[in-house]
């Protein structure tokens, strides 16, 4: 009771990256709170899952295994999670900010009347005193995320409702196996007690999951463009530079909203989090939401027409000028000096 719970997603029989990252974070939080870490997996053919999950320091793993529970469906998964949470009363519940977590999380929070914070970039334990109500709280989950407008970071708490729920994007937390021989208990749930047949009302006619063709997250060099790039046409320059350097092209939210590049290249709080060796930010002003996804890059070059752009303060090299002029020079001198 009152433990930290992680809802784990399964892809092709493997625990999703984001779930592994959350298990790692969940273990840290559980240690601070001096409680157990528990995990729930809902799906089918889960006999090999325990050996993947428990090494992250999971004390109890709940499995809901039924042919009809894979692939994910809203109502049956909600039913399992809601009922299990009612029984186990977790104090914290974490989910990936994925198409599954963002479908399931709000549903569960609405059913349990508990608070949910989306796309957190940091999770910490802390206290709170509500002076108006004269109440003091210990060991609350601080759900930290950039908020509206860009230049602010909000710390959200759920003082009175449990579980305290948060979603986190893939890549934001780091994964780390605690102990390959960790001893955890596996509980196989009797699915019929958690889900009724009437909850299987959606028929999945076709499902086509493609591995992302892009590997921006794994690329050592990223050339990213923002609204300041100005057009789809100008983005070609970024592609050229990325190709020459052996990197990938990323973009800020503003560039994607403007239609300059595809959606799956988005870097930032609501997109990818990257940590390349070199990040070249072209025409990116550097709102906090964007920085949240790239500020851990080893080296940053910022190219901007605005010498006051916020991105400049975290850059190793700041070049003020026009990308149409600067990028060709970078390509030229790279080629000249690597022959």
């Amino acid at each position: 009771m009152n433990n930290v719970f992680v809802y784990c997603e399964i892809e092709d029989g493997q625990v999703a990256e984001v779930s592994q990252e959350l298990l790692t974070k969940g273990r840290t939080l559980a240690n601070e709170l001096n409680c157990n870490l528990e995990a729930i997996v809902v799906g089918h053919k889960l006999d090999k899952i325990a050996q993947q999950v428990i090494p992250y320091g999971v004390d109890t793993l709940y499995l809901a295994d039924d042919k009809r529970l894979y692939p994910y469906q809203t109502l049956p998964h909600t039913a399992v999670v809601v009922r299990l949470f009612e029984e186990e009363q977790p104090q914290i519940a974490l989910m990936g900010a994925t198409s599954i977590g963002r479908d399931l999380g709000p549903r569960v929070s609405s059913a349990l009347h508990s608070g949910l914070t989306a796309d957190c970039t940091s999770l910490e334990i802390g206290s709170h005193s509500d002076k108006k109500a004269g109440k003091d709280y210990e060991n609350l989950l601080y759900q930290i995320r950039p908020a509206f407008g860009g230049n602010i970071i909000a710390t959200i708490i759920n003082p009175d409702c449990r579980p305290q729920m948060a979603t986190v994007r893939e890549g934001v937390m780091k994964k780390n196996i605690l102990d390959p021989k960790y001893k955890g208990k596996v509980v196989n749930l009797d699915v019929s007690k958690y889900v009724s047949d009437t909850e299987f009302v959606v028929e999945i006619i076709e499902r086509h999951v493609e591995k992302s063709k892009l590997n921006i997250k794994g690329s050592p060099i990223i050339v990213a463009g923002g609204y300041g790039v100005g057009s789809k046409e100008n983005f070609k320059l970024l592609h050229q530079l990325a190709e020459v350097l052996g990197g990938e092209v990323g973009a800020s939210r503003a560039a994607i909203d403007a239609g300059y590049v595809e959606h799956d290249r988005q870097i930032g709080q609501t997109g990818l989090t990257v940590r390349p060796k070199l990040y070249i930010a072209c025409g990116i002003s550097g709102q906090i939401q964007h920085r949240a996804g790239m500020e851990q890059s080893a080296q940053i070059i910022a190219i901007n027409t605005d010498p006051e752009a916020p991105i400049n303060s975290i850059a190793d090299y700041v070049i003020t000028g026009d990308i149409a002029d600067i990028i060709p020079k970078m390509i030229k001198y790279y080629k000249q000096n690597t022959k």
Partner: peptide, 28 residues
């Protein structure tokens, strides 16, 4: 259920940036 505990202005930890012009020499 969720309350905003604090809102902080982001203070940018200014890195020791090299500010360079777009001249050929600097870029090279």
């Amino acid at each position: 259920p969720t309350k905003v505990k604090t809102i902080e202005n982001v203070v940018l930890q200014a890195k020791d940036s090299k500010v360079i012009s777009d001249s050929d020499e600097n870029i090279e």
